[in-house]
């Protein structure tokens, strides 16, 4: 079954260029290693958001919760387990992934029965509540956050390490999701998006399907949280871990910009968004928030289908 991916012929070319960039980029541009690492983090954000928002039609503003859980799980394990750095990090990432998936199962069972805007608003509340809880909980440093242990390697090695780790995570996420979307599970997600009552009435087990989808997103977000926390070196409950107003919104924005529900849309959206942000953010001085708001309006008004959706539409028009 041919799925709408544009430009179809060059799927492998894009993948090859990205892989080359992922592998050689940090070497060739060592000063940009941290920026590139953040780029892969953004790709994970967009890919995981698209699983629900694009493929399944559930707009979640609460995915940041899984990222935050990943941040704190790693920080606590690395603080308390008494392990050397890399062992502690590995255990922390596993703990973050497991806890995030558990959270997705619990929240999913409670919230995925809610439809449309109510789900969006409910998940927004989830993200805010998580930030407030973390900010008031002494065990995780409350409002002053947590510091992560120092990376033991040489100067410059640390950036490369996180750059490659996040690249590997983004690549795994992309490949796994691409495969999943090619299975009946992917079709089931689309069916739920297009008409959930119909899917129910055709005998699909929609509730478990929705929970598994959210769990898959949570899995990758949990790991990304642990890696990002270590890369940044410090987690603030509201500005890093449960940063709904920045990361949480960006996830949505990047996906819509690139084209939700498409193979390359989230990746493309993350690239464009991140590069634009890096180029113009400092230059905008205090006006970042205004620019972000403007960007949201522009995207929603002019690119409701995203770039990939727009391209596919144009191709369909010229073909007919």
């Amino acid at each position: 079954m041919s799925r709408a991916t544009f430009p179809r012929l060059s799927d492998w070319h894009i993948a090859a260029v990205l892989a080359l960039f992922g592998l050689a980029g940090p070497f060739l541009l060592p000063t940009l290693a941290t920026q590139i690492a953040f780029l892969w983090l953004m790709v994970v954000f967009a890919l995981t958001w698209d699983m629900l928002g694009g493929r399944m039609g559930y707009n979640s503003f609460g995915n940041i919760v899984f990222f935050g859980i990943g941040c704190y799980a790693a920080a606590v394990i690395q603080r308390d387990a008494g392990l050397p750095y890399f062992e502690g990090l590995a255990l922390g990432l596993v703990a973050g992934a497991v806890l995030s998936v558990l959270a997705a199962i619990v929240f999913g069972a409670a919230m995925l029965g809610i439809r449309g805007h109510y789900f969006a608003i409910g998940t927004l509340g989830l993200g805010i509540a998580a930030g407030e809880i973390a900010a008031g909980w002494d065990y995780v440093g409350a409002g002053s956050g947590m510091a992560l242990p120092l990376y033991p390697g040489e100067l410059g090695e640390r950036e490369l390490f996180f750059c490659y780790s996040l690249f590997a995570l983004a690549a795994c996420c992309f490949l796994l999701f691409r495969w999943i979307y090619s299975t009946r599970f992917g079709l089931a997600l689309n069916a739920i998006r297009d008409d959930q009552d119909k899917a129910d009435a055709m005998g699909l087990r929609t509730t478990p399907i929705k929970i598994v989808a959210w769990s898959l997103s949570a899995f990758f977000l949990g790991i990304s949280g642990g890696l990002a926390a270590n890369m940044i070196g410090f987690i603030d409950p509201r500005d890093v871990a449960f940063a709904g107003a920045t990361y949480g919104v960006w996830m949505v924005l990047m996906t819509i910009l690139g084209g939700k529900g498409t193979l390359w849309g989230p990746v493309l959206g993350a690239f464009i968004f991140h590069v634009t942000q890096e180029l113009f953010w400092t230059w905008l001085l205090g006006w970042q928030r205004v620019a972000l708001g403007l960007l949201i309006v522009l995207i929603v008004v002019f690119f409701p289908q995203g770039i990939m959706g727009w391209l596919a539409e144009r191709r369909a028009r010229t073909a007919s």
Binding site: M1, I180, R184, L187, A188, R193, D195, K198, M202, G203
Partner: peptide, 29 residues
């Protein structure tokens, strides 16, 4: 009621009886 954004062939594929199966059994082409 049909799945409007999916192709007719995809509509048919996800309407097959085997799609009734457990969620992990759906993880196959």
């Amino acid at each position: 009621r049909i799945y409007g954004e999916m192709t007719c062939a995809e509509n048919m594929a996800i309407s097959a009886r085997e799609a009734h199966g457990h969620v992990f059994s759906l993880l196959r082409p």
